[in-house]
Nucleic acid binder design. Structure first.
Lengths: 126, 126
DNA sequence: GAGTTCATGTTATATTATAACCTATCTTGC
DNA sequence: GCAAGATAGGTTATAATATAACATGAACTC
């Protein structure tokens, strides 16, 4: 099931809601309920192979080689595509800030909403 | 209504769900429905006086003097308290990363989950 | 093959959020 | 004053997201 869910997510580079994944998988198997999908997603996220975009309530397959990093997502509000980046500077600076108050970070959520280069140039084709 | 919602949020330093706010306000006024609360929250967020914690689906009053900054939240998974920080370095670095791919940032979501100093010392009182 | 474990199925429901439409109040210019 | 528009909020209904709780079945263990 995890493999099926991951395959569906990988066929898109835009995020999908859990119910979109569900609908997509129901094409072949009508007896499929939300908990099945949410369980698979939870396991995939645990393993770092899928990320949840908190601000979109949606999920994407991880595009990085190595999992276990801190992902930084750029989310285009026009076309919905998502880029995944990594920055040690950001991770370090967040640790530094947390350290000032003795906070022990366990999980980071970094999401940037905006407009990708492609959509920007379409909108204002100078 | 915005004032009422803001007052409720300010009485706590932990995040509240929209429905917690609703219940709290219903104490005095039983005829109050979700859209009313969500509208007030939307306006407050627009004005920078309230933030939505995306990863918690919850809301907090902004604690900063000046609104319009990029807030960085530290969320304690034990006690639920939230600290709000600002870092120009992070903002700059995020802009730099975005710039590399021509992405135009409009809104930032930065949330760090972990354990606050207080809860850490309680748990392992060395 | 009885007992255990693990993934998944199943049913029901909780939680979060918004659409669509209505009503009241305020405001502004005449 | 009062019509016209603007704005906030009320009301009803429902959409979208997520999980609890329990049942089933296959696979493995001894």
């Amino acid at each position: 099931m995890q493999a099926d869910v991951l395959a569906v997510l990988r066929r898109r580079d835009a995020p999908m809601s859990a119910y979109e994944v569900l609908d997509r998988l129901r094409d072949g198997n009508s007896r499929l309920a939300p908990p099945t999908i949410y369980r698979a997603l939870a396991a995939l996220i645990e393993g770092g192979r899928v990320h949840r975009l908190e601000s979109l309530k949606a999920f994407v397959a991880c595009k990085c080689e190595q999992h276990g990093h801190v992902p930084i997502f750029s989310i285009c509000k026009e076309c919905g595509t998502v880029e995944e980046a990594v920055s040690r500077r950001i991770t370090n600076e967040l640790s530094r800030i947390a350290g000032q108050s003795g906070f022990a970070p366990a999980r980071h959520v970094i999401e940037v909403h905006g407009q990708c280069a492609r959509c920007e140039s379409k909108e204002a084709p100078a």
